[in-house]
């Protein structure tokens, strides 16, 4: 019984990790290429989830809802980039933090104004609900399994795009030397808008996919945003590979910590104390992991020196 439960929790951790990667990939790309710290990334996640919930309610189609989340988040990303973010590239990080914090306030309250304070729900479609039986007799939610598959496919696609395509070459060139690619005739401001929209679309997709497991509500983006920060700090800011490894590390540490730590403490503490100490420690485990990584490598696992 216990091994099957452990396998299930490990899969949950993996699923959490790949979803975190969708968020962290955009953040780390935007920082790597434009040098911008974007707190409003969580709002794009929220916009994706709301667009999906709204579309699913209107059309009943889950795939259309996912398409809507991608489109809405990308469009919101372009609008935000052109109106506000573009003015922040030359500013210091303090200004970027404040301006994007202001954007969170505006976007969150704006969403509350349009959709109200009550959470919306996004239904998992029939063909993805229920469970599947994996080898060794592990029963696992079909939807969560598809999240893992989709997340890994998107990650593969992203790696391929950055390594093999022309846009990818430009993005990598932009990370290395912005002025030089400008001098070589690449339209930098279009490249920036594109990267921002790409990051936004990934965040929006993550919001829609997670929205079907949790409820869709205002403020859903910020906890994920902060976890994504932890991910890219661990992985090294600007590194997609680091974001991927970091996201899986965080996903597994968090999920397995919540599962295993109370059990571990119950070996030598009474049950109620064990569950409360275990839960407290589990909620801090990823931050302790982050502090540990920083002690050894202040610029993250894959950060430059």
């Amino acid at each position: 019984m216990s091994w099957i439960l452990l396998a299930e929790q490990t899969l949950n951790g993996l699923q959490f990790g790949v979803m975190l990667f969708l968020m962290a990939a955009g953040l780390t790309l935007i920082f790597g290429v434009m040098g911008l710290i974007n707190l409003a990334h969580g709002s794009l996640y929220m916009i994706g989830a709301f667009a999906a919930a709204g579309t699913a309610a209107a059309t009943g189609s889950f795939l259309l809802a996912l398409a809507a989340s991608l489109a809405a988040a990308a469009i919101a990303g372009v609008v935000i980039e052109v109106t506000v973010i573009r003015r922040l590239y030359d500013r210091d990080h303090l200004d970027q933090v404040l301006a994007t914090f202001a954007l969170i306030l505006i976007l969150s309250e704006g969403t509350r104004w349009i959709f109200g304070s009550f959470p919306l729900f996004l239904e998992v479609p029939d063909y993805l609900s229920g469970t599947v039986t994996l080898p060794l007799g592990v029963e696992y939610s079909r939807y969560r399994l598809s999240l893992i598959v989709v997340g890994l496919l998107v990650a593969l696609g992203l790696f391929w795009m950055i390594a093999r395509t022309r846009v990818g070459i430009r993005i990598r060139a932009g990370e290395n030397d912005r002025e030089m690619i400008g001098a070589l005739g690449v339209d930098i401001s279009r490249l920036y808008t594109l990267v921002f929209a790409l990051g936004a679309a990934l965040a929006g997709l993550a919001g829609a996919l997670i929205g079907a497991i949790q409820s869709v509500q205002v403020g859903m983006g910020e906890p994920v945003l902060i976890l994504a920060f932890v991910v890219i700090v661990i992985g090294g800011i600007g590194s997609i590979k680091g974001a991927f490894i970091g996201a899986l590390l965080i996903g597994l540490t968090d999920t397995l910590g919540r599962f295993l730590l109370p059990k571990l403490f119950s070996l030598f503490l009474e049950p109620s104390a064990a569950s409360s100490v275990g839960a407290s420690l589990a909620s801090m485990s990823i931050y302790i992991l982050m502090a540990g990584v920083l002690l050894v490598r202040p610029r993250g696992l894959f950060g430059g020196t």
Binding site: I226, V233, S280, S283, M284, L294
Partner: peptide
């Protein structure tokens, strides 16, 4: 650490205490 790292890490430590207080 410096710069963006410092911002994110202080944010993360704040969040750590927040979740600790909740649990």
């Amino acid at each position: 650490t410096k710069g963006v790292y410092f911002i994110m890490i202080t944010l993360a430590f704040g969040q750590m205490l927040y979740y600790f207080a909740i649990s």
